[in-house]
């Protein structure tokens, strides 16, 4: 039972990180019909920015992280939207998806060739030692990851639901034509979501890299899990992507411990395929007309 609780908590912590990336993926899809296959690399890059800043200028972690956040929002938010998405999306959503695969290849190998092919240790935000709550030991890193991801996602939800800017972003996502007809600057709203995606990816980088280590290909599995999470939960809603992340994190942890360690990914994949076959809008998605 104690094992079970620990597994669930650490699964939730990993799942919350997947959720950060999956929510960004969902936002880009909702406001722009953009499918970004480079999501994993969008997590990898800020990790290396932080690392490079610490190494070059001996900055404290929080300052390096803050700078990385700004850099990420400008480059992976604004520049990505303006230089790549705006140029290619008119050719079709699938063409853009392929282009982002190309972008992922270029980013990964750019870091490998330009920085390092090795795995680098990454400073932890939260201490790794366990704490005991009600007799159960939890990793402080897991708790910290859950809390920070929760704050980021909660803040985003509040922003989307309760500010006029957030409402306009939702409006642009729910009905683009109607939003245009009301004078909402749909393109600007889309740009904001790209910035938010980059910021969420940076938070994910800070949480995941201490245990994954910073490596040029660290985004591969992370990106895939986030995609699976988004599809399983349903990525026409932010909430769907959140639940999807948590489910994937917990499922692979529990399946790995109780069913088969070597096939733990298999259970996630099986769930993915079942969802795609029988509930393509996702477990928590809404089935209202999906734009194709």
């Amino acid at each position: 039972m104690i094992d079970f609780v620990q597994l669930v908590v650490s699964g939730l912590a990993t799942g919350a990180i997947y959720a950060l990336v999956a929510i960004g993926f969902a936002l880009l899809w909702q406001t722009s019909n953009a499918v970004n296959f480079a999501q994993g690399e969008f997590v990898m890059l800020p990790a290396f920015v932080v690392l490079a800043l610490i190494k070059a200028f001996d900055l404290p972690l929080w300052l390096a992280a803050a700078i990385a956040l700004v850099v990420a929002v400008v480059i992976m938010g604004g520049l990505f939207k303006r230089a790549i998405v705006d140029a290619i999306l008119p050719q079709g959503a699938m063409t853009l998806a392929i282009a982002t695969i190309g972008l992922a290849v270029a980013m990964k190998n750019g870091v490998r060739a330009g920085y390092s092919a090795e795995a680098h240790p990454f400073p932890a935000l939260f201490p790794v030692e366990p704490i005991r709550i009600l007799g159960v030991g939890f990793s402080l890193a897991d708790i910290g990851a859950l809390v920070l991801a929760g704050v980021a996602i909660g803040g985003l939800s509040l922003f989307l639901a309760h500010t006029l800017a957030g409402r306009q972003m939702q409006a642009a996502a729910q009905n683009r034509d109607a939003a245009l007809s009301l004078g909402i600057d749909v393109d600007r709203m889309a740009l904001y979501t790209f910035g938010i995606n980059a910021a969420l990816a940076t938070v994910a980088a800070l949480l995941v890299t201490p245990s994954y280590l910073a490596k040029f290909d660290m985004g591969e599995s992370l990106g895939l899990y986030a995609f699976y999470a988004a599809i399983i939960g349903g990525f026409n809603r932010v909430l769907g992507a959140l639940w999807g992340g948590l489910i994937v994190g917990v499922l692979s942890n529990l399946a790995g411990a109780y069913l088969s360690a070597s096939y733990k990914d298999g259970f996630v994949l099986a769930l993915l395929i079942v969802v795609i076959l029988f509930r393509p809008e996702g477990l928590f998605g809404s089935s209202e007309e999906r734009k194709v």
């Binding site: 006029l164 306009q168 729910q174 009905n175 034509d177 939003a179 007809s181 009301l182 004078g183 209202e288």
Partner: peptide
């Protein structure tokens, strides 16, 4: 301009839809 077809934001309330009409 009121375009053709469905013009509401389905997952928002009536109030929120009205508010967005006044964004300008």
């Amino acid at each position: 301009f009121v375009p053709q077809g469905r013009n509401l934001f389905p997952r928002m309330t009536v109030r929120q839809n009205l508010e967005l009409g006044g964004v300008v």
